[in-house]
Structure formats: structure tokens, C-alpha cells
Nucleic acid binder design. Structure first.
Lengths: 239, 239
DNA sequence: CGCACTTTTGACTGAGCTCAAAACTGGTGG
DNA sequence: CCACCAGTTTTGAGCTCAGTCAAAAGTGCG
């Protein structure tokens, strides 16, 4: 259950096998959520953190008028609310964007890890820092890229992240978000996101049907996005 | 030199005085930067992290066409690139938005802290998590708020953060960014940011002249922004 | 086959962009 | 003290991107 997380961490540094056991020990239990359910509620104070094992999830915030902004997307192996271990109070909700399986990890157990296993602590800290890098790349895309470029950047990021956990088949990956949900990711209207997607399709850069995205021309997609994967830290070095 | 940082951490949990010494010990040296200089270069691999002691700084990223997006603003007491301790490679630059004084903190020393002082480690981790919360609030503001609301949100956030470090005088604070720089914060054109500022001025919500912002009507500013300071974690609890 | 949801299209509107110029500010040198 | 310069703020005009409203077409499921 901890496996995808461990592989995610292992990709960034050489880790002893004992960390795998250490992490497994603090798992409380597994839970499943249907598409659309809240995995964690905005404003709650969980005593555990949630590791996504299967499915797609997203952090989101609702404005007073009911508009939704998704602030990050999560794939299997992501610790969707590890930050709640120290922030204590959730400043956003987490929604299952597809049927999701998660495991709950005890905060008291995490605290023990910070007291006993400094290297693993740094790796968990790193995990939250990479999420921060992704936030920054989203801010840049929202503020200073064209909408096509913004979409292309998100697709490049998803492609690379899914590839890292073996969820890319050839040039295709399963992506269960509706266009309305993508609009909430990019801060656009439903009508306009549709037109942005069509623009990428008409240039034969991607195809996107049946919840399956195929990257037809990676080089062009990457060029449109100005995508540089450095910020994802997908290499191993001492941390 | 460590004082403002320590007060920042102390606001979030009860800390022994010894942590102050611990942090002071790993300071390498002080440096000063003129307005406009790079404090840290995009793509560099610093072996120290930079604590802002005086002035305003911002993380930024340049697009291929030369547009700049500022992804966060920093005030005295902020660790502007603590994340580089584990991410190793900078995925953005950090610019002095006013004359700045910083102190450099050794990464090897930070690593020793992670090995010897778990509680202080968690507090430093927390510091990076709060920056992440701020990133999320910016994403929401960029994606789903009106431009007036977005600006109002940034001003509320600055007001509260500056108040926490005693940089608010009555209802006013010094804010040295030009409108062009604010445009890079919000992802707008220079012309349009000017009109957004004028809208808030004409409603007597703020005044902004001479690098000084005065909040004339906090309640209205907060309402326009839908500002909820929870995400800044400005209270003390065991972490 | 019918219902709910999602995607697509069209028409119109408005927010925010660019280009361009004018007004204002603070600092410098004569 | 004044003229000048660079940087910043402000205003105006026209255009484009992206929003809303509304409806049609497509899809999957019971």
C-alpha cells in the first residue's frame, strides 16, 4: 500500500529498505471514495494524513459565489494532505476526481518518524516541497502563459508524473476529469476550456477522447508549454 | 539577525530559547542587495539558504517571451529559499524588490538540525508549508476571483503578515513595489493594474501613494477579498 | 428508449490587452 | 533655483480574448 509512495521517494534519493517498513507501520487503514466525494473536508483538523493509492484527487477551494478552484491534482503515490501533519487545520478540501483508494497515516506515527529517522523526515519534507514547486509552476502558467500553453503545461506535467509511476501506456494515459473539472483546474469557463482543448487537437498535438489523453507530438506539446521538468525533481541525489 | 525568523516560528508554537542559539550558530554571513538585484539565481544550486532580514523580495520566473511572473512576496523574517535545502536546484529566481539585507544559513547546519532537533526541524518544515498555503491562496485568487478581489486579497495578506512582524504603523505600511511589479505579481498588464488600484481607491477602501498603503476600511477590504487568515497559521499550538 | 451528464457550437458582451501619449515624481547638474 | 532626465503613473482608443446565455449534439447507463 505504501509501495507507490516509497517508489516516489526512492526516485529522489537512495533509501534503505527499512524506511518501507517504517512507513507501513504507521498506516491506520484503507478507505475508498466514490467520484465526487470529499476525501478531506475544508476546515477539518485530521489526526492522520491521506496517501492516495489509486485514482485521481484534487485540492480545491470554493469562493463565496460557489466557483471552485482546484489548486492541485494528485495521482497514486501522492500524499494529498501531508501538510496537515503540521498545519493542523485544512485550508482547502480534497475531492475524489475519480473513484479513489487511500490509506490513512497516523500523525502521531509521523511525529515519531521526525524524532527517530531524520533522513526519512527530510524525504517527507521534500515531498511537500515538490508540491510547492508544482504550485509555483501553476501560478506562472495562470499568470503569464496563454491558455493553450497553460493547458499544455498541465498535460506535460501529468504525463511526466504518471510516467514516473508507470501509468503511461505508450503515449496515452487515462485521465478521468471532465472538461468542467479541467475548467476548475485552469480557472476558465467550461465553454472556453473546450475551445482551448480543440485548438490543441486541431494542431494534432494531442487527442483526448473517452477519458484517454494521447500525446501525439511531445516535442510540440513541450514547446507550447515551455515545459522544463526540473521542478519535479525526478532524479536521485543525497538529500 | 535570526530574531525576526525566531519570532515568526514562536508565533506558531511554544519554543525553548535554545532554538534561537541553534539557528544563530548556522548563520554564515550577512549580505546586502540593491533594489532589482538577484538574491538567488534561477537554476543555481546554493549550499546555503537565505533569510530575509530587511526589505521586500520576490520569487519570480521568466517566460520565454520575457514576461515575468512573481510567485511569492517576502518580508523580513521569511526564509526565501529554505526549500533549496532539499530541492537542491532553484526552479526560480529571487529578486530584491527593495534594498535588502539577508543572512545566509548553511545547508550542512540545517541538516545537523534535522538530525539533532526534531521539533525545530518540524518548525522549519512548517515554515515551508505556510509558504505553500500562500501559494494555494494565490492560485485561487488568480483563477476564480475578480481582479479587485485578487488585489484586495494580496493587500489583506500583506497587512496581516506585516502586522505580525510589527511593520504596520496605525493602518499604514510601507510597500516599495511599483505598479509594474504588482502587475507581475497578479499576472496583469501595467495599464490594467493601475485601473484596478484606482477602483479600490475610488471606493475609499485604501489609499496608496508614495510607496505607502493605508487601509482605510479593513472590513470592506476583507469582504472584497473574501479574506480568511486561517491559512497563515498565525496561532500557537503544539506541532 | 429515455434520462442525466458531458461536449460542442453560436451569438453576443465585456474584461483586459496593446499602443500611444500625457502627466507627474524625484534626483542631478548647471 | 531651475531645467532636464528617467522612471512611474495615468488616460484614451481600439481590439481581442474569454465570459455568459442558450441550445444542440453526443454518450453511457438502466
Amino acid at each position: 500500500m505504501i509501495e507507490t509512495l516509497f517508489r516516489n521517494l526512492e526516485r529522489r534519493d537512495v533509501l534503505p529498505d527499512s524506511y518501507r517498513t517504517r512507513l507501513s507501520e504507521i498506516v491506520i487503514r484503507e478507505r475508498r471514495f466514490a467520484k465526487g466525494e470529499d476525501i478531506v473536508a475544508d476546515g477539518s483538523r485530521p489526526t492522520y494524513s491521506t496517501l492516495l493509492v489509486e485514482g485521481f484527487a484534487g485540492r480545491y477551494k470554493l469562493t463565496h459565489e460557489g466557483a471552485r478552484q482546484i489548486t492541485s491534482l494528485h495521482v497514486p503515490g501522492d500524499f494529498v494532505d501531508l501538510h496537515a501533519f503540521l498545519l493542523k487545520t485544512m485550508d482547502h478540501g480534497i475531492s475524489a476526481l475519480s473513484p479513489c483508494t487511500v490509506v490513512l497515516v497516523d500523525h502521531a506515527g509521523l511525529k515519531r518518524i521526525t524524532e527517530q529517522v531524520p533522513h526519512l523526515t527530510r524525504m517527507l519534507w521534500l515531498d511537500t516541497l515538490i508540491t510547492g514547486s508544482i504550485h509555483r509552476s501553476w501560478i506562472v502558467a495562470m499568470g503569464r502563459r496563454s491558455k493553450s500553453s497553460h493547458l499544455a503545461h498541465i498535460l506535460c506535467e501529468l504525463y511526466v508524473r504518471l510516467q514516473a509511476i508507470d501509468r503511461v501506456d505508450g503515449r496515452s494515459f487515462h485521465f478521468p476529469l471532465s472538461q468542467g473539472e479541467m475548467a476548475d483546474v485552469m480557472g476558465l469557463s467550461l465553454v472556453h476550456i473546450n475551445r482551448v482543448i480543440q485548438a490543441l487537437r486541431q494542431e494534432n498535438v494531442i487527442s483526448w477522447t473517452n477519458q484517454t489523453i494521447t500525446v501525439l507530438d511531445w516535442d510540440r506539446l513541450q514547446a507550447i508549454a515551455e515545459f522544463d521538468p526540473t521542478y519535479l525533481n525526478l532524479w536521485s541525489e543525497p538529500r
